[in-house]
Amino acid sequence: MAKGVCPECGAEIEIEDPVEKEIVECEECGVELEVSKVDGDEVEFEVAESEGEDWGE
């Protein structure tokens, strides 16, 4: 199991067989993350681009 840290909330994320560009979701803060680098059991994430939510009605 590879591990990385959510750049948004700092939570540790475990991911099985990570693949670069794969999108995962942080269980603590819910942000979508893109696997940006895989180095053995270490994974780096970037916040994935997402569409904003409009609460303005």
Binding site: E28, C29, G30, V31, S50, E53
Partner: peptide, 11 residues
């Protein structure tokens, strides 16, 4: 429990 989510129904 910390509850501060970026998305979803229960933020």
């Amino acid at each position: 429990r910390i509850l501060k989510m970026s998305k979803g129904y229960y933020q």
